[in-house]
Simulated assay, not measured.
Amino acid sequence: MEKKLLYFESKSIDLLNHNIPQTLLIHASLFNADYLKELAKMIQKYGYIFISQEEVLKSTEYNTLIKTYSKKGVSWIFRWGISEGLGNGFMQGDVTTPKKIIELAKQ
């Protein structure tokens, strides 16, 4: 998750020239519940604070027009980049979830 956090932070800066309030989507599972405290500490280590989704969406970047749609559940940053003409190459380098984590999450 740390690599994912830093990756999307860098994509935000690549696209918008600054970091923006981000949304952390966590699916309800025992696995996530077991590690939530550690995840929160790691995120806070990078200076993030937790705010409501309502506060996140007040950021003007979330008004950015999306011109490209997909059935894939990609991030807003990817949608904005592709809509700005950066193509699918903008998604290069995305951190994949290790297979072990995927298996543990299924339990």
Rank of each mutant, 00 (worst) to 15 (best):
K45V: 04
L6C: 01
L57A: 04
V56P: 02
F78M: 08
L5Y: 03
L104C: 06
M42F: 00
L36A: 10
M1Q: 08
K100P: 01
G81S: 01
H27K: 13
L5P: 05
Q92K: 13
I82P: 00
I13W: 05
V56Y: 04
Y69P: 03
L65V: 14
Y46V: 00
G73I: 07
M42W: 02
V95Q: 01
K71E: 14
K100V: 11
H18D: 12
T60H: 13
E54P: 03
N32A: 05
G47P: 04
A28Y: 15
F90T: 00
I26W: 05
E38V: 06
A33L: 14
I66G: 03
N19W: 06
Q107H: 15
K71M: 11
G81A: 13
E9G: 06
K106E: 09
Q53D: 12
H27D: 15
S52F: 03
L36P: 00
Q44P: 01
S10N: 14
E9R: 15
K4M: 08
M1S: 11
E9M: 12
D94P: 04
D34L: 14
M91W: 02
K4L: 10
P21K: 03
S75R: 00
T68D: 10
I66C: 01
K11F: 03
A105W: 08
I51H: 03
G73F: 08
E9P: 02
Y62Q: 02
K58V: 02
K106S: 10
T64N: 09
D14G: 03
E9D: 11
K106H: 07
E103C: 02
V74E: 11
T68W: 13
L39N: 08
K100E: 15
K72T: 07
Y48I: 00
T97F: 00
T64G: 02
S29Q: 05
R79V: 01
A28G: 13
W76T: 08
E38C: 06
